[in-house]
């Protein structure tokens, strides 16, 4: 397989307490139909759970949905934990009810893309597909391992 034909691995899940999973499920299906491997974590994940899973599953990106208004706490927390784990090559994108002002702020914090309800699925798929371009060769993504030793 060439790099381009190795499926991207994407973690899709919900952080926080709300259970509105209509959107994430559709995103999960759309990414699968676009040939990606979606690791679906289900509901009520904490940022710690998401990051642990992302590392064990070695995903290229994390897509999370928040509808509870807690995005300004939860999303930066995910980014912070990724950094702590030396895994900040994993791209984070998000969807949910997120006001424009917050979108700007979250992007400045490192959330790569944010999607509001009503976004065409194709737009999200295109974004994730685009990650193929930025995926580092495997041997350059291993990190130093210093954190563990």
């Amino acid at each position: 397989m060439t790099v381009a034909t190795i499926p991207l691995r994407i973690l899709i899940g919900k952080v926080g307490l709300d259970g509105h999973d209509r959107g994430v499920k559709l995103v999960a299906r759309a990414l699968r139909d676009a040939g990606m491997e979606v690791i679906y974590t289900g509901l009520h994940q904490t940022p710690e759970q998401v990051v642990n899973t992302a590392i064990q599953e070695d995903v290229n990106a994390i897509g999370i949905s928040v509808h509870s208004g807690a995005h300004n706490y939860l999303l930066p927390r995910v980014l912070e934990l990724l950094k702590e784990q030396e895994a900040d090559d994993i791209v984070v994108f998000a969807g949910g009810i997120i006001p424009n002002e917050d979108i700007c702020w979250l992007k400045s914090k490192g959330v790569r893309a944010l999607y509001l309800p009503g976004t065409p699925m194709e737009e999200i798929v295109q974004f994730v597909r685009g990650l193929h371009e930025t995926v580092l060769p495997l041997t350059e993504r291993i990190g130093t391992g210093k954190r563990d030793t």
């Binding site: 926080g16 307490l17 709300d18 904490t46 509870s68 208004g69 807690a70 300004n72 706490y73 939860l74």
Partner: peptide, 22 residues
């Protein structure tokens, strides 16, 4: 709010960031 809906007190760690939001 979400913590109340999920039976969590406002000072539960899982309620962080969601108290009084929804």
């Amino acid at each position: 709010d979400m913590p109340t809906l999920m039976g969590l007190d406002s000072d539960d760690p899982r309620a962080r960031g969601e108290v009084g939001y929804c």
